[in-house]
Amino acid sequence: MLTIDQATYDAIVAHARRDHPVEACGVVAGPEGSDRPERLVEMVNAAGSPTFYEFDSTELLALYRRMWDADEEPVVVYHSHTATEAYPSVTDIGLAGEPAAHYVLVSTREHGNNDGPVEFRSYSIIDGVVTEEEVAVVPELPPIDAPSDSS
């Protein structure tokens, strides 16, 4: 299951809407092993395409260097589909390089740049096997040391 806070969810959706009809892409980094998507990083789609996305190679290295320095990893890797459903394409599956990440797909095919519901779905992609998972949108991620809802 992917647990994501409302503000990050909204920011991903807003990014997808803003870039439509080009595919939007980015990551949400979090502490290694925590499964907490804490730091949204919008990336430029170097392909600038409605059917393909690719992080610029120099920006990709800068992104990973910053994560390594902070003991972070990409907890979420997201991109949008602008004409098709929010399901990983054959290309997405073949190129998925982060087995521990939640691959989030947002589809803007219904409303494009405008407001309105979007498909927001999450998957694990491991060795070519796609498994959809539940998405829990919470007001805020729970405190690290207090997993219960005692607050």
């Binding site: 892409c25 990551v27 990336m43 392909a47 059917t51 393909f52 996305y53 690719e54 992080f55 190679s57 990709l60 290295l61 990973y64 890797v77 991109h79 990983p88 394409s89 054959v90 290309t91 997405d92 190129l95 998925a96 390089g97 982060e98």
Partner: peptide, 10 residues
């Protein structure tokens, strides 16, 4: 030397 898979898809 750093090896990184592209983050890319369709």
């Amino acid at each position: 030397v750093v090896v990184l898979p592209a983050v890319a898809g369709g």
